[in-house]
Protein backbone atom coordinates (compact mmCIF):
# COMPACT_ATOMS: atom_id res chain seq x y z
CA UNK A 1 0.00 0.00 0.00
CA UNK A 2 2.83 2.37 0.82
CA UNK A 3 4.10 2.16 -2.75
CA UNK A 4 0.68 3.10 -4.12
CA UNK A 5 0.69 6.25 -2.03
CA UNK A 6 4.36 7.11 -2.38
CA UNK A 7 5.42 10.73 -2.73
CA UNK A 8 6.30 10.18 -6.40
CA UNK A 9 2.96 8.60 -7.22
CA UNK A 10 1.04 11.40 -5.54
CA UNK A 11 3.00 14.04 -7.44
CA UNK A 12 2.54 12.22 -10.72
CA UNK A 13 -1.15 11.73 -10.04
CA UNK A 14 -1.84 15.40 -9.35
CA UNK A 15 0.15 16.37 -12.41
CA UNK A 16 -1.85 14.00 -14.62
CA UNK A 17 -5.15 15.32 -13.29
CA UNK A 18 -3.93 18.89 -13.73
CA UNK A 19 -2.96 18.15 -17.33
CA UNK A 20 -6.31 16.50 -18.07
CA UNK A 21 -8.10 19.48 -16.70
CA UNK A 22 -5.92 22.02 -18.48
CA UNK A 23 -6.41 20.27 -21.79
CA UNK A 24 -10.15 19.96 -21.34
CA UNK A 25 -11.00 23.48 -22.38
CA UNK A 26 -7.87 24.04 -24.42
CA UNK A 27 -8.37 26.70 -27.03
CA UNK A 28 -11.77 27.88 -25.78
CA UNK A 29 -12.16 31.52 -24.83
CA UNK A 30 -14.35 30.95 -21.77
CA UNK A 31 -12.18 28.07 -20.54
CA UNK A 32 -13.12 26.72 -17.14
CA UNK A 33 -16.31 28.77 -17.16
CA UNK A 34 -17.72 26.09 -19.45
CA UNK A 35 -17.77 23.67 -16.54
CA UNK A 36 -20.45 25.89 -15.02
CA UNK A 37 -22.00 27.14 -18.24
CA UNK A 38 -22.76 23.71 -19.64
CA UNK A 39 -25.10 22.54 -16.87
CA UNK A 40 -26.56 26.04 -16.71
CA UNK A 41 -27.50 26.12 -20.39
CA UNK A 42 -28.72 22.55 -20.11
CA UNK A 43 -31.04 23.65 -17.35
CA UNK A 44 -32.45 26.47 -19.48
CA UNK A 45 -33.25 24.02 -22.28
CA UNK A 46 -34.84 21.49 -19.94
CA UNK A 47 -36.89 24.17 -18.30
CA UNK A 48 -38.23 25.42 -21.61
CA UNK A 49 -38.92 21.96 -23.03
CA UNK A 50 -40.40 20.22 -20.01
CA UNK A 51 -42.05 23.01 -18.10
CA UNK A 52 -43.48 25.04 -21.00
CA UNK A 53 -44.10 22.47 -23.71
CA UNK A 54 -44.27 18.85 -22.54
CA UNK A 55 -45.54 19.51 -19.03
CA UNK A 56 -44.41 15.93 -18.17
CA UNK A 57 -43.40 16.35 -14.60
CA UNK A 58 -46.10 18.69 -13.39
CA UNK A 59 -46.99 16.28 -10.55
CA UNK A 60 -43.48 16.44 -9.23
CA UNK A 61 -42.45 19.47 -7.20
CA UNK A 62 -39.37 21.33 -8.44
CA UNK A 63 -39.30 19.18 -11.58
CA UNK A 64 -36.65 21.24 -13.45
CA UNK A 65 -34.16 20.81 -10.60
CA UNK A 66 -35.16 17.17 -10.34
CA UNK A 67 -34.35 16.81 -14.05
CA UNK A 68 -31.11 18.71 -13.80
CA UNK A 69 -29.83 16.56 -10.93
CA UNK A 70 -30.63 13.41 -12.90
CA UNK A 71 -28.88 14.65 -15.99
CA UNK A 72 -25.83 15.86 -14.09
CA UNK A 73 -25.47 12.45 -12.46
CA UNK A 74 -25.97 10.57 -15.71
CA UNK A 75 -23.47 12.83 -17.48
CA UNK A 76 -20.96 12.08 -14.78
CA UNK A 77 -21.40 8.37 -15.41
CA UNK A 78 -21.09 8.83 -19.19
CA UNK A 79 -18.13 11.17 -19.00
CA UNK A 80 -16.24 8.98 -16.60
CA UNK A 81 -16.64 5.77 -18.56
CA UNK A 82 -16.09 7.35 -21.98
CA UNK A 83 -13.00 9.23 -20.88
CA UNK A 84 -11.48 6.27 -19.09
CA UNK A 85 -12.26 3.92 -21.96
CA UNK A 86 -9.72 5.57 -24.24
CA UNK A 87 -7.37 6.67 -21.47
CA UNK A 88 -4.96 3.73 -21.67
CA UNK A 89 -4.71 3.87 -25.45
CA UNK A 90 -4.55 7.66 -25.32
CA UNK A 91 -1.61 7.56 -22.97
CA UNK A 92 0.11 4.89 -25.03
CA UNK A 93 3.21 7.03 -25.39
CA UNK A 94 3.73 6.98 -21.62
CA UNK A 95 2.98 3.30 -21.23
CA UNK A 96 5.41 2.30 -23.96
CA UNK A 97 8.25 4.53 -22.80
CA UNK A 98 8.25 4.82 -19.03
CA UNK A 99 7.30 2.87 -16.00
CA UNK A 100 4.04 4.39 -14.86
CA UNK A 101 1.48 2.62 -12.70
CA UNK A 102 -1.24 1.74 -15.19
CA UNK A 103 -4.13 2.11 -12.77
CA UNK A 104 -3.10 5.70 -12.22
CA UNK A 105 -4.03 6.62 -15.78
CA UNK A 106 -7.61 5.38 -15.42
CA UNK A 107 -7.84 6.79 -11.93
CA UNK A 108 -6.67 10.24 -12.99
CA UNK A 109 -9.23 10.50 -15.76
CA UNK A 110 -11.93 9.48 -13.28
CA UNK A 111 -10.84 12.24 -10.95
CA UNK A 112 -11.05 14.89 -13.62
CA UNK A 113 -14.61 13.74 -14.37
CA UNK A 114 -15.35 14.03 -10.65
CA UNK A 115 -14.05 17.58 -10.51
CA UNK A 116 -16.38 18.42 -13.36
CA UNK A 117 -19.25 16.83 -11.45
CA UNK A 118 -18.54 18.95 -8.40
CA UNK A 119 -18.63 22.10 -10.51
CA UNK A 120 -21.95 21.01 -12.02
CA UNK A 121 -23.33 20.37 -8.55
CA UNK A 122 -22.65 23.99 -7.67
CA UNK A 123 -25.09 24.93 -10.43
CA UNK A 124 -27.62 22.38 -9.12
CA UNK A 125 -27.45 23.93 -5.66
CA UNK A 126 -27.86 27.42 -7.05
CA UNK A 127 -31.05 26.35 -8.81
CA UNK A 128 -32.25 24.55 -5.70
CA UNK A 129 -32.01 27.81 -3.82
CA UNK A 130 -33.69 29.79 -6.61
CA UNK A 131 -36.50 27.22 -6.78
CA UNK A 132 -36.78 27.33 -3.00
CA UNK A 133 -36.26 23.62 -2.57
CA UNK A 134 -36.09 23.02 1.20
CA UNK A 135 -32.64 21.81 2.19
CA UNK A 136 -32.91 18.96 4.67
CA UNK A 137 -30.52 16.62 6.45
CA UNK A 138 -31.10 14.25 3.51
CA UNK A 139 -28.28 16.10 1.79
CA UNK A 140 -25.86 13.92 3.74
CA UNK A 141 -27.10 10.90 1.78
CA UNK A 142 -25.84 12.47 -1.43
CA UNK A 143 -22.19 11.35 -1.11
CA UNK A 144 -23.38 7.77 -0.66
CA UNK A 145 -25.14 7.78 -4.01
CA UNK A 146 -22.28 9.53 -5.74
CA UNK A 147 -19.88 6.99 -4.33
CA UNK A 148 -22.11 4.27 -5.71
CA UNK A 149 -22.01 5.72 -9.23
CA UNK A 150 -18.30 6.40 -8.91
CA UNK A 151 -17.36 2.86 -7.90
CA UNK A 152 -19.67 1.39 -10.52
CA UNK A 153 -18.21 3.63 -13.25
CA UNK A 154 -14.64 2.98 -12.07
CA UNK A 155 -15.13 -0.78 -12.27
CA UNK A 156 -16.56 -0.42 -15.76
CA UNK A 157 -13.78 1.99 -16.71
CA UNK A 158 -11.08 -0.45 -15.67
CA UNK A 159 -12.70 -3.20 -17.66
CA UNK A 160 -13.44 -1.09 -20.73
CA UNK A 161 -10.07 0.65 -20.90
CA UNK A 162 -8.25 -2.70 -20.76
CA UNK A 163 -10.55 -4.31 -23.31
CA UNK A 164 -10.20 -1.29 -25.61
CA UNK A 165 -6.46 -1.96 -25.93
CA UNK A 166 -7.23 -5.24 -27.66
CA UNK A 167 -10.60 -4.59 -29.23
CA UNK A 168 -11.30 -1.18 -30.65
CA UNK A 169 -14.92 -2.21 -31.12
CA UNK A 170 -15.47 -1.61 -27.43
CA UNK A 171 -15.93 2.12 -27.84
CA UNK A 172 -18.74 1.70 -30.39
CA UNK A 173 -20.44 -0.96 -28.34
CA UNK A 174 -20.25 1.14 -25.23
CA UNK A 175 -21.71 4.16 -27.02
CA UNK A 176 -24.75 2.09 -27.94
CA UNK A 177 -25.05 0.70 -24.43
CA UNK A 178 -24.98 4.22 -23.00
CA UNK A 179 -27.59 5.38 -25.48
CA UNK A 180 -29.86 2.51 -24.42
CA UNK A 181 -29.04 3.19 -20.78
CA UNK A 182 -30.11 6.79 -21.16
CA UNK A 183 -33.67 5.68 -21.90
CA UNK A 184 -33.65 2.70 -19.56
CA UNK A 185 -32.81 5.00 -16.68
CA UNK A 186 -35.38 7.44 -15.34
CA UNK A 187 -33.51 10.59 -16.26
CA UNK A 188 -35.77 12.73 -18.41
CA UNK A 189 -39.02 11.09 -17.31
CA UNK A 190 -40.33 10.51 -13.82
CA UNK A 191 -40.38 6.78 -13.10
CA UNK A 192 -44.07 6.93 -12.16
CA UNK A 193 -44.79 7.57 -15.82
CA UNK A 194 -43.96 3.93 -16.63
CA UNK A 195 -47.05 2.80 -14.73
CA UNK A 196 -46.04 -0.87 -14.61
CA UNK A 197 -44.79 -1.87 -11.18
CA UNK A 198 -42.70 -4.80 -12.36
CA UNK A 199 -40.91 -2.71 -15.00
CA UNK A 200 -40.29 -0.02 -12.38
CA UNK A 201 -38.81 -2.61 -10.09
CA UNK A 202 -36.52 -3.92 -12.80
CA UNK A 203 -35.42 -0.44 -13.86
CA UNK A 204 -34.43 0.30 -10.29
CA UNK A 205 -32.10 -2.70 -10.22
CA UNK A 206 -29.74 -0.56 -12.28
CA UNK A 207 -27.25 1.02 -9.86
CA UNK A 208 -27.24 4.30 -11.77
CA UNK A 209 -31.03 4.47 -11.65
CA UNK A 210 -30.97 3.67 -7.97
CA UNK A 211 -28.40 6.38 -7.29
CA UNK A 212 -30.24 9.03 -9.31
CA UNK A 213 -33.61 8.25 -7.73
CA UNK A 214 -32.08 8.06 -4.28
CA UNK A 215 -30.35 11.40 -4.64
CA UNK A 216 -33.57 12.99 -5.90
CA UNK A 217 -35.51 11.51 -3.01
CA UNK A 218 -33.25 12.89 -0.33
CA UNK A 219 -32.34 16.17 -1.97
CA UNK A 220 -35.39 17.39 -3.84
CA UNK A 221 -38.68 15.64 -3.21
CA UNK A 222 -40.02 12.52 -1.54
CA UNK A 223 -42.26 12.16 -4.60
CA UNK A 224 -39.54 9.96 -6.06
CA UNK A 225 -39.67 6.23 -6.48
CA UNK A 226 -36.54 4.70 -5.00
CA UNK A 227 -35.36 1.12 -5.04
CA UNK A 228 -36.19 0.89 -1.35
CA UNK A 229 -39.80 2.04 -1.52
CA UNK A 230 -40.56 0.23 -4.79
CA UNK A 231 -39.33 -3.09 -3.44
CA UNK A 232 -40.97 -2.45 -0.08
CA UNK A 233 -37.71 -2.93 1.74
CA UNK A 234 -37.27 -6.56 0.69
CA UNK A 235 -33.72 -7.91 0.70
CA UNK A 236 -33.61 -7.44 -3.06
CA UNK A 237 -32.71 -3.79 -2.46
CA UNK A 238 -29.12 -4.75 -1.81
CA UNK A 239 -28.79 -6.33 -5.27
CA UNK A 240 -27.70 -3.15 -7.07
CA UNK A 241 -25.04 -2.54 -4.45
CA UNK A 242 -23.80 -6.12 -4.76
CA UNK A 243 -23.78 -5.68 -8.50
CA UNK A 244 -21.60 -2.56 -8.15
CA UNK A 245 -19.17 -4.50 -5.99
CA UNK A 246 -19.08 -7.37 -8.44
CA UNK A 247 -18.47 -5.10 -11.43
CA UNK A 248 -15.68 -3.34 -9.58
CA UNK A 249 -13.91 -6.55 -8.58
CA UNK A 250 -14.22 -8.10 -12.04
CA UNK A 251 -13.05 -4.89 -13.68
CA UNK A 252 -10.08 -4.61 -11.37
CA UNK A 253 -9.01 -8.23 -11.83
CA UNK A 254 -9.34 -8.06 -15.60
CA UNK A 255 -7.38 -4.80 -15.67
CA UNK A 256 -4.59 -6.21 -13.50
CA UNK A 257 -4.37 -9.25 -15.69
CA UNK A 258 -4.22 -7.25 -18.92
CA UNK A 259 -2.00 -4.44 -17.60
CA UNK A 260 1.11 -6.60 -17.99
CA UNK A 261 0.82 -6.60 -21.75
CA UNK A 262 -0.46 -3.05 -22.35
CA UNK A 263 2.95 -1.83 -23.51
CA UNK A 264 3.20 -4.39 -26.28
CA UNK A 265 -0.45 -4.42 -27.33
CA UNK A 266 -1.11 -0.73 -27.73
Amino acid sequence: MSTYLSKENKALFTELVRTDFKLRYQGSILGYAWSLLRPLLLFVILYVVFVYFLKIGKDIPHFPVYLLLGIVMWNFFVEMTMQSLSSIVGRGDLIRKIRIPRWMIVFSSSVSATINLLLSLVVVFVFMIINQVPITLGIFMLPVYFLMIYVFALGLSLFLSAAYVKFRDVSYIWEVVLQAGFYATPIIYPLQLVGNELVEKIILMNPVAQAIQGARYYLITHETLTTYNTWDGSWYVILPTLFVGLVFVVGLLYFRNQAKSFAENI
Binding site: A11, E15, T19, L23, K97, I98
Partner: peptide, 24 residues
Protein backbone atom coordinates in the same frame (compact mmCIF):
# COMPACT_ATOMS: atom_id res chain seq x y z
CA UNK B 1 8.18 11.34 -23.07
CA UNK B 2 4.79 12.71 -22.13
CA UNK B 3 5.48 16.12 -23.60
CA UNK B 4 2.16 17.56 -24.61
CA UNK B 5 2.21 19.93 -27.58
CA UNK B 6 -0.89 21.75 -26.34
CA UNK B 7 0.67 22.71 -23.02
CA UNK B 8 3.12 25.52 -22.45
CA UNK B 9 6.81 24.88 -21.91
CA UNK B 10 6.32 25.62 -18.24
CA UNK B 11 3.50 23.10 -17.79
CA UNK B 12 5.49 20.50 -19.65
CA UNK B 13 8.45 20.96 -17.32
CA UNK B 14 6.22 20.19 -14.35
CA UNK B 15 4.54 17.25 -16.05
CA UNK B 16 7.82 15.76 -17.22
CA UNK B 17 9.33 16.36 -13.79
CA UNK B 18 6.46 14.43 -12.20
CA UNK B 19 7.05 11.57 -14.62
CA UNK B 20 10.64 11.49 -13.38
CA UNK B 21 9.39 11.22 -9.82
CA UNK B 22 9.75 14.81 -8.66
CA UNK B 23 7.15 16.64 -6.61
CA UNK B 24 5.86 20.00 -7.77
Amino acid sequence: VGFNPELTGRDNVFLNGALLGFTR
